[in-house]
Design a protein around this nucleic acid. Structure first.
Lengths: 211, 211
DNA sequence: CTATTTCTATACCGATCGGTACTGAAGTAT
DNA sequence: ATACTTCAGTACCGATCGGTATAGAAATAG
């Protein structure tokens, strides 16, 4: 166990993380988490070593472990931050119709992953698409989160069908899977260096015959 | 350098690999390569250790290095084997029309990656989508091969347009990128456990947008 | 001030990484 | 039989892996 009795690893980012007693932390934990997210995003979970992290975050191993618990804990925190940043999926739910929703999803994916200020590709995909057996818990967690994202799409399309916003012969499950596939494909193309415009064009093609 | 003066690592699988002089190899090099492909497919390049390989292939490290040169050399050989097995991309070129070609591509991807006898997903994608800096040559090589695959699709669609097999307002580059994206998306969905039938349905939806 | 707590830093842990030197056995060509 | 070559196996290489014990400095509460 860590000797840090004060930090609650489940509440990083909340106000409760700061202890009243003892020497205060010298580094900015949120900025450190941001850099960790960037590293994991570029190199994946297994491809990012503790030495990479301490060098890039500018802190020592004991500080890192006191703040985040473990490499896996840090990765999961970085993943939470990533998902909060990739807000297009949540924002798309505001779209009034199914086709607007689908368009917001695909264009949002193209814009996020085609933005050259970000690392190419998607952390939720390439963080640990496959890995060594000893890291399988991370891979499973990413798979689980991707499935959650897919089910959110599915639920939105189910609602659309119930509202008459989709034809009677349209299958929400198939459509949700199709949208997920195009999003995933966009992330892989982006990892290969595709531009925002190219991804946007593909998104537009993918929506051409929306039912 | 290796002490093996006889094996030419660029001709594994050819007849010339066998030396006339000296003790013959005891293991089946093609079978070993097949198992290596399976391991890399499941765990990726970085996620597969030499210990994994020697244990699963049933040979010692010196034997492995004499036969394949290095871990990276073995991976590239396994990748060649993989691409020769994933023959749907080549077979699809036999289709007479653009839409038949697109259908053959997407259904071929769905069938290959939805086949539960294979590891889930695509070696060319998940072998090293991202990685540590010291493995970046492998990642670059996979990116390069993916781009080759995309350009083959593009060339086929350019020909289709020249033959009047595509509408005048259709852009072969956008269509090729769209097809590639759907194929990639299928591989990610497959890595998450999707079934052949689910992938087939998505492929069918994707083709509904074909001009 | 003292007592307490948590900080950072050094230095280290056993395990594993990819890769190889060396040895003796086993096979082939003459 | 002899010379030669390549085999498989052991044991090891330095480097790095994720993670931690320890110690002293620094900040707080009283």
């Amino acid at each position: 166990m860590s000797t840090n009795l004060c930090t609650d690893w489940s509440t990083i980012g909340d106000e409760q993380e700061n202890c009243v007693i003892g020497r205060p932390r010298e580094f900015d934990i949120d900025r450190a988490l941001e850099r960790a997210m960037d590293l994991f995003w570029r190199q994946g979970y297994e491809g990012t070593s503790l030495s990479d992290l301490t060098r890039e975050l500018g802190l020592t191993r004991p500080s890192l472990y006191a703040a985040f618990g473990s490499k896996e804990g840090l990765f999961l925190k970085a993943l939470d931050l990533y998902e909060s940043r990739a807000g297009y999926r949540h924002a798309a739910l505001q779209a009034p119709t199914a086709v607007d929703y689908a368009r917001a999803l695909l264009e949002g994916a193209a814009d996020l992953h085609g933005d050259k200020r970000n690392p190419p590709g998607c952390l939720g995909v390439q963080g640990a698409l496959v890995c060594a057996p000893q890291s399988d818990s991370v891979r499973k967690e990413l798979t689980r989160r991707r499935k959650i994202g897919e089910s959110i799409i599915l639920n939105r399309l189910k609602r659309a069908k119930a509202e008459g916003d989709l034809p009677a012969d349209a299958d929400p499950a198939d459509l949700a899977r199709y949208l997920s596939i195009v999003i995933y494909g966009i992330t892989i193309q982006a990892a290969g260096g595709a531009t925002r415009k190219e991804l946007r064009n593909a998104a537009e093609l993918a929506l051409r015959n929306w039912p």
